[in-house]
Amino acid sequence: MKSAKEHIVVRGCGAVSSLGADSETIAQGYLAGKPAITIIQHQGQPTPVASLPPTAEAALQALISSNSGYRQLDRSVHLAIFAAIQATTQAGWLNQGTAQQEDLAVNIGSSRGATGLFEHHYDAYQLGQLSSSSSPTTTLGNLSSWVGHAVNAGGAQISHSITCSTALMAVANGVAWLRAGMANRFLAGGTEAPLTDFTIAQMKAVGIYSRLQDDLFPCQPYGISGQNTFVLGEGAGVFALEKALSTELRTADVIIEAVGFGFEQITSKTGISAEGQNFQRSMRHAISHLGQDDNQIDAIITHSPGTRAGDNAELAAIEAVLGDKLPSLTTNKHLIGHTLGASGALSLQYALHLLSSQQITTPGYTNLLPTHTSGPMRRILVNAAGFGGNAASIVLSIV
């Protein structure tokens, strides 16, 4: 008798971004298709950023006030804890008392880590007033350990950075650990709080930051302006993952069908070729795990940071891999900006929204993204890529 197949199921999801801090508000934001981007003054220049709206900020501050230990932490850790509590609550994992859950592992990543706190402590250092908390609250491991405390996780706690592919790599780690039996449940995701003076200046120094502050869409992935339109955003996304047999799956469960990785040799400071070789490899790697009899991709959520080189490379890679069988292509960065290490997680959360709503709201600034509505979206591929030539792809499907 053939044994039932094992699957990796998304049991819970938590997300916070410029669209909001709860699933209903975020879903409404996606359906409305209105950018959640505001304009601030940065070094005397009007600069678009995607920061938390007042309601989400109030919810985050309430969390910080709930635990005296949280006040010393970086905003990136606050965002991660907020999203992790949402994910574990949805999964029903926080209803098991206060004892440590030894079978629950955590992997939270970030591209930049404790950016705001680093800058704060460096300013204090220059004044000869460095706090004893500066080191323990700015280590990268600080991310997963505090999330672990918040959700009573007693298993492995991993923090890492692979730039903008960070969150997808965390989810891939979760898949591997669960399949290997090294954990029974796994929290995976990414977080970023990069809206600081120095980090914004760094992005401007790369020469990619949007100057379309007067446009309805300051960030325009696959736009026709001919400009770089990168906009920095903040947020976090965390997923509660566990294994389930085919016989244990429920209607509308979402499973992680495949993960793929790609890498190319660095030829520029951002590490991406015109052909998007890293994307080609990661997508082919992921799709190869689907099998030849049923490997149709219904939609792709692109990485597309709003830069000419990055957007064109990814589109070239998609065309090279899928040829004339292009599925719907969509993105969320025109709404929430680029959240760096959290971007892949927020794209996965967007995929959950699409699988639920079965509706893509097309931005009005471009006609370059094909959107097909002839059939249901059952399987979605999510891309992410980062500095250094790396890329990752994850395939989600709905039962």
Rank of each mutant, 00 (worst) to 15 (best):
S132T: 03
T199E: 15
Q129S: 05
R179L: 13
S135W: 06
Q126Y: 00
N184M: 11
T163Y: 07
Q157D: 03
Q129R: 08
R179H: 15
Q157I: 02
S165A: 11
N142G: 08
T199K: 14
H149C: 14
P194A: 07
A114M: 12
L130E: 04
A150F: 14
L140W: 06
A193V: 10
T191F: 06
G181V: 02
I158P: 00
T163D: 10
G181Q: 11
L127W: 05
G148Q: 04
A193G: 12
G181N: 09
G141D: 08
L130Q: 01
A167Y: 04
H160Y: 03
S144A: 13
S131K: 11
A150M: 10
M182L: 14
T139N: 12
A167V: 01
G141N: 12
G189A: 03
L195P: 10
N173D: 09
L130G: 00
S131T: 09
V175W: 00
G155M: 13
T138H: 06
S131W: 06
L178S: 05
A153G: 09
T199Q: 15
R185K: 13
L140V: 09
I158F: 07
P136T: 02
T115E: 07
G148P: 05
A156L: 10
A150G: 11
V175A: 00
A172S: 09
F198A: 15
V147C: 13
Y122V: 00
G113W: 06
T191A: 10
T199V: 15
G128E: 07
A167C: 02
H121N: 10
T191C: 06
G190F: 02
G181P: 11
E119R: 03
R112H: 12
G181F: 12
D123S: 05
R179M: 14
A167K: 01
S144H: 11
